Structure formats: C-alpha cells, structure tokens
Amino acid sequence: MTEEALYKLRFPIGEFQKPEIITPETIKLWIQDIEQFPQAVEAVTKGLTTEELNWQYRPDGWTIKQVVHHCADSHMNSIIRFKLALTEESPTIRPYYEERWATLIDSIDDNINDTLNLLNGLHAKLGKLLSHISTKELSRVFVHPEHGRRFQLDETIGMYAWHSNHHLAHIKQAIAYKGRFSS
C-alpha cells in the first residue's frame, strides 16, 4: 500500500486545520458536531457483531471497539481540559498515552454499550458547557506540554469536533473495508 493511501486511511477527513478566523457560527457548528457524535457512533455501530467490532480501520490501526472506547477516554480528558482552562490561569494539562490506554481491558472490551452510554452523557454535558462559554472565555488557554504550545478554547472546540468526525470516519472506513486491506 502506498504512503499516500496509508495517509488517507489514517486521516480520512484530512488533518485539523484551524481557520484563520473563528466565527460564532463556526463555534456553533463545531458544538453541534460534538453534541451529535454519540448518536452518530451509535447509529453506525448498532448491530455490529463481535467480529465486526474487531475490524481495523487501517493496517496496524485500532479496531472499531478501540476507536469507540478511545473517544470516551479522549473526550473525558477534553472536558477536564476545558474546565481547567475556565477556572485556572493558563494551566498545564496532563497528557496521557492514548496508545497504551487503547490496550487496557476496558478498551478491548467487545461490549461497547457502557461506552456508548458514557459518550451520550459526556457529550451532553460537554455540549452544555461549550454552549455557555462567553466570547471572552473562548480566548482562555491551556498549555499542552507535549506540543509545547498554548491552545485557545475556541480552537480546542474545533479540534474536538474534528476529532469526533475523524474517528466517526474511521469507524465507517473499517465497516466499508470489512477490516481488510490489500498491500
């Protein structure tokens, strides 16, 4: 498989691109994507068999179930990051080893029902928080030590909307390819 083909499998919707200007309308659309994500994941995974939940979205990639479990882990961290930035002055967030988390027992569980329930509640709570961030608060920041930079909350909303759509595309991709990729 070519490098370009592998890149497209890894980033089926492309990489996140921060717009030069983030408008209130853009923020609203991003929040809608975040709020609707759990229902979209539930719709595409409904009725999948254990075998299908174990399909990978690309060669050497995670399985569908790992992607679903990862989204819950990642988005739990996201709400904490937003709350830290809203309540502290430029806090340094704590990164985590997502690839290691993806191998823990709860991330390889064939039953994704609890995780889907968690995503529903988490995204409802996250959507409520994000919908009530003021224009002034959107410029608050947190420091991500792995990237060595400050992330503003308005950009971060976009990144998590992208992250949701990115992994939804991974799940759909695994289903379309039936977890099989030719070289």
Rank of each mutant, 00 (worst) to 15 (best):
A5T: 13
L6R: 00
K8E: 11
L9W: 03
E15R: 15
E15C: 09
P19N: 06
T26P: 11
I34N: 00
V41K: 01
T45R: 11
K46T: 07
L48Y: 04
T50C: 12
L53N: 05
N54Q: 13
N54G: 12
Y57M: 02
K65Y: 03
V68M: 00
H70R: 02
M76Y: 03
K83S: 03
S90Q: 01
P91R: 06
R94Q: 07
R94T: 08
P95C: 13
W101M: 04
D106K: 04
S107E: 07
D110G: 09
L119N: 09
G121F: 06
L122D: 02
K128D: 10
L130N: 04
L130Y: 02
S139Q: 12
S139F: 03
R140K: 12
V141W: 00
F142I: 00
H147S: 13
G148Y: 01
R150D: 13
R150Q: 09
F151P: 06
Q152W: 04
D154T: 08
D154A: 15
E155W: 11
E155H: 00
E155N: 07
T156S: 02
G158P: 13
A161R: 06
S164D: 08
N165T: 10
A169E: 15
H170M: 10
H170S: 04
H170N: 08
A174R: 00
Y177S: 11
